[in-house]
Design a protein around this nucleic acid. Sequence first.
DNA 1: CGTAGATATTTTAAGCTTAAAATAATTCGG
DNA 2: CCGAATTATTTTAAGCTTAAAATATCTACG
Lengths: 199, 199
Amino acid sequence: MSDETRNGGTGRPSAGADTASILLDAETRLHGGGDHRSELRLWLRLLTLTNLIESEIRSHLRAEFDVTLPRFDLMAQLEKAAEGLTLGELSRRMMVSAGNVTGLVERLVQDGLVERRPAPGDRRSALVSLTPAGRAGFEAMAHAHGDWVGDLFSDLTPVDIEALMVLLARAKASARTSAQRQEGVSATSHKLSKEPSNV
Amino acid sequence: MSDETRNGGTGRPSAGADTASILLDAETRLHGGGDHRSELRLWLRLLTLTNLIESEIRSHLRAEFDVTLPRFDLMAQLEKAAEGLTLGELSRRMMVSAGNVTGLVERLVQDGLVERRPAPGDRRSALVSLTPAGRAGFEAMAHAHGDWVGDLFSDLTPVDIEALMVLLARAKASARTSAQRQEGVSATSHKLSKEPSNV
DNA sequence: CGTAGATATTTTAAGCTTAAAATAATTCGG
DNA sequence: CCGAATTATTTTAAGCTTAAAATATCTACG
């Protein structure tokens, strides 16, 4: 979550990137002499925009509904699942750790916005769903939330939005593929700290 | 930080959005009957992508350098500021609260990666900068970080990247304008919880 | 000079978040 | 039916994060 962050900052002179690098690209990558300058700028911009919006939404939620963003997120998931969701399913959909969800649900149950009951047919699982109060509260928040997001993007044309949707989908596909490639690649462990390296 | 989150989920029938809505748009917004469906989908996609990348970078940093993302972020800011930065400047650039930076710097000083000294000419301020160890450590991380990001976006063409840069800049401008508009708009306080409303 | 307001930072309390280890229940292959 | 592997969840320890209140210092204005 940083504004000018993660740009690599090596200050290395560009290998003449930007345009006309289409043909060179594959070779560059093959030789490991990658530049990644434009990708880093893209990531930075993406991150800044997301942070900006997220923090805007967070403060609206707090000021107008006295609710935190993660709680709103969780309720949003439940609102879409009439039958309720297991903790594991919530964890996957929210893209957060299982332990995180445990605590979040606990607090929402205390607030009376959410309820949990044993899942039928699997004694390990619990089903979580909105209480009537939770559903009503969420409805109001969702309406306001839509307005905020609409407002945040109000200077974009429908064409801009559609173009972004397409490009972001492409980026998402790229990132997923890359993440999958990395899955199960053993670490090289450089370590900065001074712990006894148990190699 | 949610996958399918914050879509409003009201299930309201569309007012015929998507194409041909350019002319209707202004009026729709004026009358407050906004739909915001496409904006919400855009926000969701943006958020999912950012979460995906962020979590990938986080796990690389942990596995290969035993460092957290916020610490990397902070070091990245310092790397670009030869003279060092004040805590306040760090807070602004990282887009996090001041108190957050206090603790982060504390821990990095303990690790020997960062040092703080009184700012000349202002006894309230401290200047923070990388130690030689911090600089060396960051250099290695930044290099690897560039590779990861390059890899995450490796299926995008230079044209895709350029188009995204332009559109994201536009979105950022829109969001900033909107956030500014909201600045200092008194809250309507609906509140979900059951505290005594001190109105 | 003196003080009111602004600015820089720290402290506090509460909540969020993660990774990893621990429990518990289920499934699957023999 | 048994045990190994898998899956669902909780627990733990550490760290991150925020908003708000508290300190400390500075700046400007009279």
